[in-house]
Amino acid sequence: MSLVRSASTVLAKELRIELRTHDLTNTIFFFVLMIAGLFSFAFSPTAAESRRILPGLVWMAFFFAGTLMLQLCFVREQTNDTLAALRLAPIDPFAILLGKILANFAFLAATEIIFVPIFSVFYNVSVGEVIGRLLLVLFLGTFGLAVVGTVFSAMAAQARMRELLLPLLLLPVLAPVLIAGVEATGELLAAGHSVGQMWVSMLAGFDVIFTTATWLLSGYLVEE
């Protein structure tokens, strides 16, 4: 089976499970909603402050939601003992990871599409003019999060205290994404509405480098 076909089979399986249970999406929707409120209570920002802190807040909320969600992606296979079956399947190990990466990306992207308007209302920052570019920046960063997060979730699934371990592994590696994403979002929301080329290329570069690394190392990650 070709890589694309086997990856989309895994993706379809992940989406089907999610559509039946809604475990992941329910959890992260609620989590992001809660963060949106709690940050406002913690900082009670004025209009000008909102504009300044919103980019960082949005990224932090999605990052934490992502780490919360990604834990389940391999643990679920373990509890159901289905990882062995996936391994035995006569497909490229990268296809398994790619299917899961795309599924995790889809869940997070859906959350972002829903929550960008909500953040915009809560913090009174208008995003209408830049919504397309804003989502592009968010999706580029989120794809990086999904790639690295899925790989680390596969690694942490074997370890003690895995719930604790995944964020500790993931967040330092994502530091460049956070910096580039927050800066790009800030530029978009500022008066000029223009986004710096370098931040977008940083986000895209991160995605390309780590997707390639995952492709090269996938054999080691999935094998027993």
Binding site: V148, V151, F152, M155, Q158, A159, L169, P172, V173, A175, P176, I179, A180, E183, M198, W199, M202, G205, F206, I209, F210, A213, L217, Y220, L221
Partner: peptide, 23 residues
């Protein structure tokens, strides 16, 4: 696992370098 993480961590260093430099 730790070899894979070691590789990922080191690949991250140049990205972190450029992001904080532009920052």
């Amino acid at each position: 696992i730790s070899a894979v993480f070691g590789i990922f961590a080191f690949l991250d260093v140049p990205l972190a370098y450029f992001s904080v430099r532009w920052w």
